[in-house]
Design a protein around this nucleic acid. Sequence first.
DNA 1: AAACCTCTCAACCGCGTCGGG
DNA 2: GCCCGACGCGGTTGAGAGGTT
Length: 294
Amino acid sequence: MGRQPCCDKLGVKKGPWTAEEDKKLISFILTNGQCCWRAVPKLAGLKRCGKSCRLRWTNYLRPDLKRGLLSDAEEKLVIDLHSRLGNRWSKIAARLPGRTDNEIKNHWNTHIKKKLLKMGIDPVTHEPLKKEANLSDQPTTESDQNKENGHQQVQVVPQSTNVTAAAATSTEFDNNSSFSSSASSSENSSCTTDESKLVFDNLSENDPLLSCLLEADTPLIDSPWEFPMSSTTTVEEPKSFDSIISNMTSWEDTFNWLSGYQEFGINDFGFDNCFNHVELDIFKTIDNVENRHG
DNA sequence: AAACCTCTCAACCGCGTCGGG
DNA sequence: GCCCGACGCGGTTGAGAGGTT
């Protein structure tokens, strides 16, 4: 007997998510947290398969997601990590907070691959393309290449620096980036402080990075969303996000509470220091959901 | 303005892995 | 040790947006 489908195919909705579905899912997860995805659709009142809910949440609705294109530094980090890890997108994504494996995979296939080819670098092996290899003579498919090179991917740690260096010397990368493969040049980075720190922390690691990535995942921001004690006020006790949300009886309450901060303009009130990036991203997420669905 | 082409990315599919019984 | 269910991952697809002719 074959494997059972992950969900009952009959009556399960597919395709793009509606605003209503997004609201239900966000509301459910904010209230109950992430557990047992198979049960989520039923409990949340969604006609979706659990897998689809998980994907929607992790790739799109999670409040700690960054939006927009990858920065130059992030792009270079992806290249570097890819040279070490191959197509292990989730491992790569774990090193880029706020980015999903799907996002990185898409960005790799649509942007980075082309850039590398343009630069004369084989996106699969990260070696310079052979002279006799015509550009049109590209790898048939990535999966084919991975089959051939999959084992090699893990063994190429020393060469990864070549790729990074090659990228750093490329005209294309130099134009808009002050990034250097040297960990000591972080003052030149154009990304945010935290981001820079992370990126350069990663690049400053050599073999430990590989072993770390292969053996133990560095946790992403998947820990419960708790409001840390504000750096600017000592009046209020820190409240956990869950406790706040659980006191709200409906999605409307939650939604209004979250979006209220945006409408007020937290920066205008000098509240911007009261929220960490996770909370700020929640506001962005709410805004995005509203905007995307009109 | 319309038809066609290209690109992007959200979503799906199937398989591998893991953990509980 | 085996089986089964659930989750997570990587590859692929396809709708829609944007660009070109």
